[in-house]
């Protein structure tokens, strides 16, 4: 292979990847650009990215006043936190028991978990909705978090992780006089951080972005998480005020994107790990 061929191949690779990168970045660039443009410039449908007159304050103040934007973000944080904490607290001990303890029914439970992996929220949404509606708890954080209190995927992921842990580690802890719960808290959890981190990223990304379930159980803007809030914002905005709309999309997209850009390696590893095990 001559040096010339190398540079040609390299240039070609860079060219193809760059064109692709432009397509992938275009929405973000336009989102930012449009969020800064005044109405008349947006409707002039020119291709300029830099606005002639900055309308940042105008657009973003609409985004924060037409809907309670901070409240929406807060809702998202609260719901994602409740879901994640409960999921991990429920899944860790169960996965430990299935991986390291022998008890009757363990095999049946594992089979049930494998089957549970096949059932998405979309399949169980109707009965759960009927029950929540019957109980009169629609439009609450509880309703938003309820169906996700158990994550069979978390159990499955942790189970695989714990099985790879040496039995002797647990036997040593038992000889040191720890209870089973103590083993989970003081031996398993510290050693399971990679799996817990990976699952946390997966869980937060999934629930921060989820629209399906919030759209079912929430009708009040004050209780809406960001995606649903954005839908409400569009409805309230009736016209095509794309400047304000883009400002709102910037606000709801930034938190997770910022987290991703700060911890890219962890995010990509986490999504890859959970993706491949799923």
């Amino acid at each position: 292979m001559t040096p010339q061929a190398w540079t040609l191949a390299r240039a070609l690779r860079l060219a193809i990847l760059s064109v692709g990168a432009l397509v992938f970045l275009a929405p973000y660039v336009w989102m930012l650009s449009t969020a800064m443009k005044p109405r008349e410039e947006i409707f002039s449908s020119s291709l300029t990215l830099i606005p002639e007159r900055l309308a940042v304050v105008e657009n973003f103040s609409k985004a924060f006043t037409r809907v309670p934007m901070l409240q929406l973000l807060m809702n998202g944080v609260i719901v994602c936190t409740i879901i994640l904490v409960v999921q991990v607290l429920v899944a860790l001990p169960c996965a430990y028991a299935l991986a390291k303890l022998r008890f009757p029914g363990a095999r049946t439970l594992i089979a049930a978990i494998m089957l549970g992996l096949l059932v998405p929220i979309h399949a169980t949404a109707l009965p759960i909705y009927v029950a929540l509606s019957g109980a009169g708890v629609l439009n609450t954080y509880f309703a938003l978090a309820a169906p996700f209190m158990i994550s069979v995927f978390a159990i499955f992921l942790f189970l695989q992780f714990f099985r790879a842990m040496p039995d002797d580690l647990i036997n040593a802890a038992r000889l040191d006089g720890m209870s089973e719960l103590g083993i989970v808290l003081r031996v398993i959890v510290p050693n399971a951080w990679p799996a817990i981190t990976a699952f946390s990223i997966f869980s937060v990304v999934a629930h921060w972005n989820d629209l399906f379930w919030p759209q079912i159980v929430v009708t009040e803007t004050a209780m809406a998480p960001p995606p649903l809030g954005l839908i409400f914002f569009r409805a309230a905005e009736a016209g095509d005020d794309y400047g304000a709309l883009m400002a709102a999309t910037v606000v709801v997209t930034v938190p997770l994107l910022a987290a991703f850009l700060l911890a890219q390696r962890r995010f990509i590893e986490g999504i890859t790990l959970t993706g491949l095990k799923g």
């Binding site: 970045l25 990304v205 995606p227 997209t253 997770l256 987290a259 890219q264």
Partner: peptide
């Protein structure tokens, strides 16, 4: 860059 859409709010995008 290619991974950005995975962590972006799909409704927003």
């Amino acid at each position: 860059v290619y991974f950005l859409p995975v962590v972006s709010l799909l409704v927003a995008m």
